[in-house]
Structures are given as C-alpha cells and as structure tokens.
Design a binder for these strands. Structure first.
Lengths: 341, 341
DNA sequence: GTGAAAGCGCTAACAT
DNA sequence: ATGTTAGCGCTTTCAC
C-alpha cells in the first residue's frame, strides 16, 4: 500500500535505458530494438507502473478525443443514445471521453474544462439547458453539438453550433391529435415544470396547439404540474388530479416514466386504463413495452439521434460542412393504453 | 472558433502581474490585494480563460479526491447508490471523481489510471468483477472498496480490500423460502448466466439451498438462463419456459428488471400473476412499485450501501481502521405479485 | 536505435 | 502583497 508511485524515470533506470526509449515502447513506436522493447515491457509489468495521464495530456498538443458531457445521472432514455455515440466515434477512429454530471451542474463549464484538460477535438452535450447565450459559450472553442435538445429558449446564432433533436412541440401535437382522433375531448395533461424553458414547456405548447386546432377550449383544471420528471411526483400529481374531481377521458403525459407512474395512480384510484382513461406519452423507453397495459408512446429514435450527432460533429471537425441542425422524426408505437371513446 | 487557448501566462501579461499572482487569485488565496484580484478576475472573464486541469493535477502532490468507477452504463440500480456516495463524500469534505465504463472494460486498470491522473486518496468500485487476484491489483496503491459486490470468486486477501454488499445467496434463499412458505413447491428460476462467477451464480445457489432445505428436489427443467440482465432476453426466456410445457406455480427471478419482463411474458401467454403464477425477485427498484401487479422483491438498501462504502473508505484513508467487509440486510417489500397457493 | 534536453501549464516554495 | 523559479511526468525534436 505505502508503495511510492513509479514514474517513467524509474522504469528507465530499472532498464538502464533513457526515458525516451521507455516512452517509445509505451507508445508503440517502431524504432526500438525488440530486445529493449521486451525488457521495458517486462519491467513495466513487474513494477506495476502506470503512466500518468495528466502528464501525457499536458504535453500533447492535440488528440483524437471527442468529449461527451451527459447531464442527469442514469436517465434510462440516454443509454441507447450513448451506445450509438460510442459505436460511431469508435468506428471513425476517434476516442470518446464521457463525463456524467448532476442535473444541477453546468455542462458548459464542464465541457470547457474537459476541452483544455483532454485537448478535445469536439464536444457532444447530451441533455442540457435550452437557453445558452453566446457569451457563456465563449469558453468552448471546439465544435459542439446539442444532442437530443436544441437551443429553443436561448439567443445563440444558429450558425455557431449544431443540434439533433425531435420537434417536441409537433410530437406532442400529434400525440394529442391521436387522442382527439379517437374521440377524446376532455384530455388532461401532466407536465414537469422544472422551469419554464424546458422540454416540458415545448410539449405543453404542442398539447395546447392540438386542442386549439380541434376547437377544444383548454381547461386549466386538467393541467397538472410536478416539480421533476420523477415517478413519485408523477404518481402524486395524478392522484391530485383525480381527487380534484376534474373530468377527463384521456391523459397526455410528457414522458414515459411519468406515464407509467400515472397509470398506477389511476389504477389505485379505481380507474382502468384504457377503459376509463386513455394514456399517451412521449419517449419510447423499452420499459414501456413491458408494463401492462403497454404504453402507447411517440418513440424518439435514440440510435439515430446518437449517430446523427456524431456524423455532424465529425463533418464540422474535418471541415466537410458547417454547423447543422437536424430534427428527427418520432414514430407512434401503439400500445394498449389508448382506446377509442 | 480558431481562437488560441490562453494560458495563465497570458492572463498574467494581460494584467501586468506575475503568474503566481494569477494563480493565487484562481485558487482563492487570501494574500492578494483586492484591486489586483478584481482585475485578474475581470481579465479571466473577458478572455474566457479556463485553467488546464491536467497541469493542475500534475503539479499537485496529492488531492482530496475519491475516485468512483461505475461499471455498466446507466444501471437503474446504481443511481441511488451514487447519490448516497456523492452526498457522503461531499459532507466529509472530499471531492468525488466519477468515471463510467462499459461492461466490457476493466475497472481495475481504469482505477489505476485515474489514481495516477487525479492523485486519488481512495477508490470505490461500483459493480465490478468478482474474481480479482492480488496480482492484477498491484497497480492500485490506494485503499479501495468494492461497492455492492465482493470478491466471492477471487483469491484476494480479505485484509487488503474492503467491501459492502448484501449476502446474495441468503437473500435468494429467503426469497425462495417466502414462496415455499406460501405453499409453492414447483418454483421456476430465471438466471442471467453471463459467466459462472457472477451475482447470478450466487443467487442461484440460494435458490438451490432453499429447495434443498425444504426437501424439494431441484428440477432442471424449471431453470432458465439468459445471456444478460436485459428485459428483452428475460422476456424471451420466460416464453421459452412456458412453451417447454414445464409446470410451475411460482418464479424466482434474480433481478427486478428481468421480473418485470417475465410478468409481461407470462401475461402474454395467458397466465395471470399472481393467480396462475407468483413472482418474486431481488433488487427493489423504485420502478417495481409502479408496475402492475407491484413486484414483490427483496430490496437492497441502496443508500446504506453507498453510505457504508464511503464510511469504510474514509476510515481506512484517515487511519481510523483497517479494511472491513460489511454485509447489509435486504428487506422484503411485499407487492402484489405473490399469492399463497 | 538511442539519448539529451526543452517545454506542456500550472503550483508552491522562496525571495523580495 | 507580489515576483522568480524549480519542478510535476511525460512526449518530442534534435543529435549522435
């Protein structure tokens, strides 16, 4: 335990060679004699030497690393996106450096720190704020792409960044339209109002738009809000809604996880889904296919979002194109949580 | 975009002071005049300067950082554990550095790299292999704790590391006992056989032990295996089990997520849970409280696992105690997925 | 094929 | 209160 940590110098001394030779071996350079190479490798193994990455990063002028800053620990929605990003970056011969941060931390400053520390070529932000200003982005000097969201509430010049996302408002609109098509008119809405510049707000706008187009007067007593995207809060909010006595035959819920909790709350209130109340959501978690009734939801194409993000970023990095903004399509995945009225 | 990245020297020159003064300001040292401090801060803001962490880490002889290596991206089970670890480390005045790795990567080598790079005081491995040898741990020279698992299949000296985990075998045994207590005798078992040195194997042993104690002859046609812990595979495996024609009145499933998928498979085969088949699992995911029927499961005390891990690690780091191995208790969370026969 | 030496950006003595 | 300077551990010219 109390072992002094070895440096490249120690290995050099151990082998009776210079540090540059050790460095060459460690970096798989061809210009080292086989004998010396073997000897160095052996010494490294024997002594449990592990190079210091800080020193390596410091001296390197640039790298082939792409940074990925994921906001929100263990969001089930992200895992397929991350998988796709990983795959694409690997395939392109770059290295992925992932950093998870809490939802209260700032992805921009973390990205900026990472950029310096790892000499990044580009950055991907997965799940971030929607209201960047050009000023606070001054610390980021490499190309970056907003993955699964865009800067709807910010003041950023569209030419200075890229994004890949669904059109939240129109996705919500088509979800609600589906309910309307089936004859529902009293449609409740469950929101997560963390603040008013979020995905929740956009999806709420879509809800309102769908009602308006169908000539249905929005009823504020049917709109319930929770403080977060958590299941516990969604459960409680749905119970409040039922307890309020408001009448509705369907619910539009802004996220799958919240919808699963809401269905449980409805059941606990004696309301069967979809017989007494239809439920539709947005996201397309795989979990939603295993609950009963299976959730009817608008799926985000997670792999495509990841792939597209990488493609755009590499295009910009390698000078093949400028910044782009891509919106991907959602697809209705019919479940058993929706019925005609 | 093409902006040269600034260094501390640039800031010093910009302000007409020395680098040490800038460094002092950046590190909140008291011995700087208010005027100069303000001027430096202003220049930093103006120029979007961000210090290079690699250089910082390199020069520091030690830090107050604890490394957390999480194996398996976005395992829902880990998120509460991570939250607890975060909280405790913060409260103790240390800094947490988290690193997520894929399930095919090796946590030991990543931990070793991180230890050098960040000058760690200690390491926590969350979800790792169960079969370390002393030799491969030679690269780790700081105290570490295995969080949520232990070295059941390895050859490590128990005095050289710490661990916090449930007793998987006895947890499985009591889950199966619960089914037996309710009159079940034909109890199927769903395993995830990634390899034979995993949590799956331990829980399987508990299943067998419970049967043996009750004088029930294990029936291999009731034991189904999947390649992973995924829901899709658990679903398919359960369907195979039903299709095989094997008769059973209950299932013991080694993980909540798999159980949720299994319940769906049973339903799709026309079997009601718990009327036609009881289901019990181990883990205690919060999701399990929102599916219907709610899952009966043995809960792992996630917060406690995280807290205990930090407590032990800090005790060892600060010399208050040697390595310890703690097992925490699971608690039966009764749901609606189990019925008496 | 190998070694010597400069320097990556920063902190921390040590001076002043 | 502020400046000067010696490294931290490594890679990379540039000699040989």
């Amino acid at each position: 335990m109390g072992v002094e940590r070895l440096t490249i110098k120690d290995i050099a001394r151990l082998c009776g060679v210079s540090v540059s030779t050790v460095s060459r071996v460690l970096n798989d350079r061809p210009d080292v004699s086989p004998a010396v190479r073997e000897q160095v490798l052996e010494a490294v193994r024997e002594s449990n030497y592990v190079p210091n990455n800080s020193a390596r990063y410091l001296v390197k002028a640039n790298s082939d690393a792409i940074g990925l800053v994921v906001r929100g620990v263990s969001n089930p929605f992200y895992s397929d996106v991350i998988k796709a990003i990983n795959r694409e970056i690997d395939a392109a011969g770059y290295t992925l450096m992932m950093q998870q941060i809490g939802s209260s931390e700032d992805e921009i400053s973390r990205g900026a720190i990472m950029e310096r520390e790892k000499k990044l070529r580009g950055l991907i932000f997965l799940g971030g704020r929607w209201d960047y200003s050009a000023e606070e982005l001054g610390t980021i000097t490499v190309p970056f792409v907003c993955c699964s969201y865009t800067n709807s509430f910010g003041s950023l010049d569209r030419g200075s960044f890229s994004s890949v996302s669904i059109e939240d408002e129109s996705a919500a609109r088509s979800a609600v339209n589906e309910l309307i098509r089936l004859g529902h008119r009293r449609i409740a809405c469950l929101l997560a109002e963390t603040d008013d510049r979020s995905i929740s707000e956009l999806r709420y706008r879509g809800y309102l738009a769908a009602l308006r187009e169908a000539g249905i007067e929005p009823d504020m007593s049917l709109v319930e809000r929770t403080g977060s995207f958590g299941m516990d809060e969604a459960y409680a909010a749905t119970k409040r809604l039922v307890a309020s006595g408001a009448e509705f035959t369907a619910m539009f819920i802004i996220a799958d996880a919240m919808a699963i909790a809401a269905i449980k709350a409805l059941a606990d209130c004696g309301r069967d889904v979809p017989r007494d109340c239809s439920v539709i959501a947005i996201d397309g978690l795989s979990m939603s296919e295993y609950v009963r009734p299976t959730l009817t939801t608008l799926c985000q194409p997670m792999s495509q979002i990841g792939e597209e993000s990488v493609r755009i970023l590499l295009d910009v990095i390698e000078g093949r194109s400028g910044c782009r903004h891509v919106t991907v399509e959602t697809a209705l995945r019919p479940g058993a949580s929706v019925a005609a009225l």
